[in-house]
Design a protein around this nucleic acid. Structure first.
Lengths: 176, 176
DNA sequence: ATTTCCCTATCTACTGATAGGTAGATTTAT
DNA sequence: ATAAATCTACCTATCAGTAGATAGGGAAAT
């Protein structure tokens, strides 16, 4: 991937994680990185393609940061999972990209919706593996994984809505 | 409030609860209810005003549906709270309006952001009253209230993203 | 060596559609 | 007659997307 394509994704991701899929535009991206909007279309022909690339890169980075589900003790892996959401919110000051896309999934182009769903499926699989390693049965692991993702995504929304990032820690304090 | 104003809000709310603040437009609303977009502006001069009215009506209806926090036993009130989110998702097939606005709050007009925050503040107050009636100390009640809201908002996103509404019940099964 | 050719990446200039918003005339209801 | 509500007709700005030109860098052919 070219450096320009990376700059495009960086710009789009930051804006999308504040205002959703309709908040970034080819023009704004182009202006921010000092090229013309037609050149953005050269790298990503349609907005759907750009959105897919965004969700895909985000998912890959997210899972890479998590590592293998059995890398350490289950409790440590869960703490790492919570911390990854927390750093996204507190260090970057941004929502989870796929949480944002997930909220508006009914209005997204098909390809973007698919990639968004894939993020959650892969996160579910990762968490279920951790809970399974902790000795939980399949059904219980599934339930706990869904609860974990839901609580973290919701905690980001609540913290941002109330303008108080510490709320994220309040919600997640006894989650692991 | 006139009948037309109500129809405008109905149309805008349904669309906003699928795709967020940028997903509804004066033109689309007008076309849907059979008037011209200029007439929509007569009732709601700006999109900010329309967004504020949306969030305000949604909040009032939501709290009215909840009733007084001490109306019944705390466990019953909590079950009612969870059920209210569940019916919004499963019967209407829609996200929580203020959950949607909350996700994109950094890109919303000031007035809409304020009304969105007010929704969460009033929900927090209602839940804290329920938990206080259940004998919890102030800090614990605050923590449990924040956790409840976060989990429910996140459960809606997760269920919609994975295209499986039953996921909402999976997440909230042992929440009360 | 030079020329020809293609590829990458960008540009200018444009399209049709849509966004939110406004002025002023007209209709409708009291 | 008045006031509320809607209309026609328009504005400016922005949207995603396209066509065609251009510059520079190799690779291949002569």
């Amino acid at each position: 991937m070219s450096e320009t394509a990376t700059l495009i994704l960086d710009s789009a991701e930051r804006t999308a994680r504040q205002g959703g899929f309709n908040s970034f535009s080819f023009r704004d991206i182009a202006a921010e990185i000092g090229i013309k909007s037609a050149s953005v279309h050269y790298h990503f022909p349609t907005k759907e393609a750009l959105g897919e690339a965004l969700a895909e890169r985000y998912t890959e980075r997210f899972l890479a940061a998590l590592g293998e589900p059995e890398a350490q003790a289950p409790q440590d892996m869960l703490r790492r999972y919570v911390a990854l959401y927390g750093s996204a919110l507190k260090e970057d000051g941004l929502m989870c990209l796929c949480g944002m896309f997930g909220a508006e999934i009914a209005h997204l182009p098909d390809g973007v919706a698919r990639k968004t769903r894939a993020f959650f499926e892969r996160n579910m699989a990762w968490l279920q593996a951790v809970y399974a390693a902790d000795g939980l049965a399949e059904g219980a692991a599934f339930q706990r994984a869904a609860h974990m993702i839901a609580t973290l995504e919701g905690a980001m929304i609540l913290a941002r809505s109330m303008g108080e990032d510490r709320l994220f820690d309040t919600v997640t304090y006894d989650l692991v």
